[in-house]
Design a binder for these strands. Structure first.
Length: 748
DNA sequence: CTACCTTTGAAGGCT
DNA sequence: AGCCTTCAAAGGTAG
């Protein structure tokens, strides 16, 4: 007889028989016993019952595993235990007062179909199949209490029917420890699950112990999930309850869920959240967290560290100026890595409750808070070198003493060539510019006096460092400016002392998140205003900014005190740069063999040579060309570059030096010339040789862009310098106008 | 717990 | 203008 036939037979039997009016009557009918308060079920005999099929076809409810054969006496049955009694005692389909499931019709054990996954046959006793509970699936109910902190699988102790913890061990001797689902407590009479005990004390490890038996009890953080449920052996029993809303101050406050809540209050700070903070967040430690919209990504708010405070008191990341981690939440996160170069933090398990917040701790917290508001100086070139070299020297010297290491690194630093140091000056400049961008109002005096003043041994200090000091002073007089395209010598050392570098007013308004800087020199020796002089970032071999050719010293142009490209013109130039850079760094122009084309051209920034050259040209074409003592890098141009140039160089152009014939433009054409016209003449097709298609397209586009530029104040006030003798004019050389492509060559 | 040591460079104050 | 002081990093050490 297969299962289906068996079930049909059962149903027919049940229907054909006269249904008992009550459960008690049914028990009497079946068992012939009236003394038993609840009749035991006629549990099947003979054939071990296999797992039952789906629901009862007749009742639609539970399927009993009852078999036609008479059931053995109750005392012979071993049945699954549920709660405080055998599971088969329950007969009602709905839950009883204890929430236990009952069979709809028969007062017999009925394992509901949907519960069969939680039981499995474990054998027989007196020809009665025995069932035991299997490990239920992980609870999906988010309201379930957390797993009990024990080595044993706590899930197994959950009652799969009710979501409560099973306590069937109460009616039986404690199983071996290896089979325990919960911590056990040894009492005088039995081994009892620890969670049954109440009012525990706390041992040295913070574990809760039973006051009488000194056994592990209910951990403190679990007590909210239990409630008194009676007594056993004069010991109060506890049952698990649905955990209350997390109100434990020791636990982190809940994060807002993905959907905007009624209240936009930040659970961390109690402040109102901006709407961007309530957007769905990617799961971080299975949490939904507030989000921060950066320029590049949407990042969970808690990823940000070292926040500062903005005007609204919101903590912000010092580098990204976004809302960061509230101060009272920092104890719950720890660094786990980086994301988008941003320190990433993850949640940590809350520390056990500390008894008292000691003054010492408060002092540390206060210091940390101060540290977060403290904006450090950007590192200088040596500091960057030191940071890079310290691990190496540490390994070489096999020492960790920073003082000794620093001395060695300092010595190595002084032995480096300028070219070798240039790399670190470049990095330092980048760092400085980024620092200035992110903290436009910060200055070094902000940190002045914040550190403890050091009482240096002045005599020894001066004696030991006199030589480096002089070097430093000498070096301080050197103007080190970033150059382009030559990584090994990306700095051109200028002997002319720099004016006090002004904080570029345009940098802070840059639309680029990318760090970008142009070293702007002062063209006005007496200017107090942030007057800028463009220092074209050009190959050092092609541009000479020595004192004799210094823009500041030799420019006869009437310059306004206010730099024009600090304002709208600057933005216009930037716009042009943004469009020109990708154009001119296209494949046709990317000639790796050419020293004129550097690897950094892909970066659209103020450091772009296009921008710098344009700025100089736009501000002072006269100065721009005057400083080019020789035609720009003809000798360096590789053969593969020639095809894209508009002209073929004449033999004498390869070595000439600022000869009038090859001056970029004649005084005649410089007169009354706007920058756009100037550039127009540069890139216009010459009669000498047709341009390559690529260059032609580029030239046209550049012209179109540059022609859109409104002449700036410089150009308006531009007065040509005195005509230099020997310059050839278009009129004097109409047959073949001198190729004025040096500007573009200068750019690249 | 805090300052110091030790280096170079940048920046600001002071004379 | 030149000099002086402070602070960036960093980890051991001394008070």
């Amino acid at each position: 007889m297969d299962i289906r036939e068996e079930n049909n037979h059962i149903s027919e039997t049940m229907q054909s028989e006269e249904a008992p009016s009550t459960s008690e009557d049914a028990a009497v009918d079946i068992l012939g016993q009236t003394s038993y308060p609840l009749p035991p079920p006629p549990f099947p005999t003979g054939i071990p019952a296999p797992p039952q099929p789906a629901s009862d076809p007749q009742t639609g409810g539970f399927v009993s595993n009852i078999l036609p054969e008479p059931a053995p006496p109750v005392h012979q049955q071993l049945v699954p235990l549920m709660g405080s009694g055998p599971a088969h005692l329950y007969s009602q389909p709905a839950t009883d007062r204890q929430g236990q499931l009952r069979h709809p019709k028969l007062n017999v054990v009925g394992i509901p179909d949907n519960m069969r996954q939680y039981v499995h046959p474990v054998g027989e006793l007196h020809d009665v199949p025995l069932w035991d509970f299997v490990t239920p699936p992980p609870p999906s109910n988010p309201q379930l209490p957390p797993s009990f902190p024990t080595g044993a699988p706590a899930q197994s102790s959950l009652d799969p029917w009710t979501g409560r913890f099973l306590s069937h061990t109460l009616l039986e001797p404690a199983p071996p420890v290896s089979q325990q689902l919960v911590p056990l407590i040894l009492t005088n009479t039995a081994t009892v699950p620890a969670h049954l005990y109440s009012q525990p004390g706390t041992d040295r490890q913070g574990q809760l112990r039973h006051p009488e038996h000194n056994a592990l009890g209910i951990p403190d953080n679990m007590r909210q999930y239990v409630r008194p449920a009676g007594e056993l052996h004069d010991v109060p029993l506890w049952d698990f309850v649905t955990p209350p809303p997390p109100s434990n101050p020791q636990l982190p406050p809940p994060f807002p869920t993905g959907a905007p809540t009624q209240s936009a209050l930040d659970p961390w700070t109690g402040r109102f959240l901006s709407h961007t903070l309530l957007e769905p967040a990617p799961p971080v430690s299975q949490q939904l967290v507030p989000l921060i919209l950066t320029n590049t990504a949407t990042v969970p708010a808690h990823l940000y560290s070292q926040p500062g405070t903005d005007r609204q008191g919101q903590l912000r990341h010092p580098e990204h100026n976004v809302v960061g981690i509230p101060d009272n939440m920092r104890q719950y996160v720890h660094p786990v890595g980086e994301l988008h170069d941003v320190p990433v933090r993850d949640f940590v398990v809350p520390a056990p409750p500390s008894n008292i917040s000691t003054p010492k701790k408060r002092k540390c917290e206060a210091r940390q808070y101060e540290d977060r508001l403290y904006i450090k100086k950007p590192p200088n070139a040596f500091m960057l070198y030191l940071k890079e070299q310290r691990p190496k020297v540490m390994a070489e010297l096999n020492t960790t003493g920073s003082a000794a290491i620093n001395a060695v690194v300092g010595k190595r630093w002084r032995s480096l060539s300028k070219d070798q140091q240039a790399k670190y000056f470049d990095q330092a400049e980048t760092e400085s510019c980024r620092h200035a961008t992110e903290h436009p109002d910060w200055s070094t005096k902000e940190n002045y006096g914040k550190k403890r003043k050091r009482t240096r041994n002045r005599t020894s200090s001066t004696a030991s460092a006199s030589e480096p000091k002089q070097e430093a002073q000498q070096a301080k007089r050197l103007c080190v400016t970033p150059a382009q395209t030559q990584p090994s010598s990306s700095y051109s050392v200028v002997k002319e002392p720099l004016k006090q570098p002004q904080r570029q007013p345009t940098v802070t308004n840059l639309p680029h998140q990318q760090s970008a800087c142009v070293q702007l020199q002062n063209t006005q020796t007496t200017a107090d205003a942030p007057v800028c002089q463009v220092n074209p970032v050009l190959p050092a071999s092609h541009m000479d900014f020595s004192a004799s050719a210094s823009l500041a010293s030799s420019a006869p142009v009437q310059l306004q005190k206010e730099a024009p490209f600090v304002s709208d013109t600057n933005e216009a130039l930037l716009s042009v740069v943004e469009q020109l850079d990708p154009l001119l760094t296209s494949e046709q122009f990317q000639q790796p063999s050419s020293p004129l084309i550097g690897p950094q051209l892909s970066q659209t920034s103020l450091a772009s040579p296009v921008y710098c050259a344009l700025s100089t040209l736009y501000a002072s074409p006269d100065t721009f060309f005057k400083n080019q003592k020789e035609p720009i890098g003809f000798a360096d141009i590789q053969h593969d570059i020639w095809p894209i140039l508009p002209v073929t160089p004449q033999p004498d152009t390869l070595s000439c030096s600022n000869t009038p014939k090859y001056s970029p433009i004649s005084p005649f054409s410089l007169e009354n010339s706007s920058p756009s016209k100037l550039l127009d003449s540069f890139v216009a097709p010459t009669e000498c040789q047709p341009m390559s298609p690529v260059f032609s397209e580029t030239a046209k586009y550049m012209m179109s862009l540059l022609n859109d530029l409104e002449p700036g104040p410089f150009a308006q006030h531009l007065q040509p310098s005195s005509p230099q003798a020997g310059w050839s004019s278009p009129e004097s050389d109409q047959s073949c106008r001198p190729p004025n492509h040096s500007f573009l060559q200068t750019l690249y």
